[in-house]
Write a protein that binds this DNA or RNA. Structure first.
Lengths: 142, 142
DNA sequence: TAAATATTGATAGCCATTATCAATATACTA
DNA sequence: TAGTATATTGATAATGGCTATCAATATTTA
């Protein structure tokens, strides 16, 4: 289920967290920038235009909390910079990252799901998460 | 082609780098610990037993250089800790990482290669690198 | 409305990695 | 083989994204 400003309070309450103005603003920004893969710093810069008093630590904490609650998902295209995207509740998808212009193309594929099942059998390994990224050059940069 | 103490000099020379005692020791350690996925800090601790005077920066620089030359490959199972493994010249492989005990199981599969080719066609994207990791629980930790 | 609890902002701290730079080592050249 | 240009080293300061701390404040519950 995708998070909205309306159900945020109940999502938080279900885990004994409280609804605050800061959390609402940050969720709103993530929704407004759906598909943007924002970093904490970028969220901070946007949020400051609406609430200049907000602290950087609050942004980091809120993003971490939203991850824990499954509202967003953490991505790391480049190390030393974590990015976040809204969890849509739809199929999981993966990314093609252009090494030149930085463009990110999303794809999803059930082939990977099948592959995962095979691995689980072969290695008696229970997969709970996967990180799959392809790096290279997009159409414009080749 | 896999790097050895014998061909290290020519690999370096081909890119205008020089052979040094430090580079030899570090390569030797990587060879001795094949399959260990060492971090820079770990390499540093081992190297100090053979050459106490070596600097940490040299270890970092050498590992970076070896990556650039294709002698080793960088891995990131856990963010904020980069690990390295020898490039064997054989098939590429990927990793299953146990979230509980940290065990790393290696696998390789041509299914992924095929999948990559399909992606390239579909998105007009030239893949140069992929990072594929599955996280979960190994046989002992389930 | 009060009390219990969670959250916030400011800021100091962390820690793996990088940059700086003078001293030194390597490798080419004559 | 000595001289020279160039690359490398070790020590250490700096970087930078992120986290911990804590008193002040806000939210929720009773």
């Amino acid at each position: 289920m995708e998070a909205t400003l309306d159900n945020l309070k109940s999502i938080l309450a279900a885990s004994n967290y409280k609804l605050t103005a800061q959390r609402k603003i940050i969720l709103q920004i993530l929704i407004d920038n759906r598909g943007e893969h924002l970093s904490a710093e970028e969220v901070y810069n946007i949020v400051k235009t609406e609430d200049p008093g907000i602290g950087l630590a609050t942004v980091y904490r809120t993003l971490e909390l939203f991850c824990e609650l499954g509202i967003i998902q953490q991505l790391t295209f480049d190390e030393n910079c974590r990015r976040y995207e809204l969890e849509t509740g739809e199929e999981h998808h993966h990314h093609l990252v252009c090494s030149k212009c930085g463009k990110v193309i999303e794809f999803n594929d059930e082939v990977l799901e099948e592959f995962e099942s095979e691995l689980e059998k072969k290695y008696s390994f229970k997969v709970t998460e996967h990180k799959i990224k392809f790096y290279g050059y997009c159409e414009d940069c080749q």
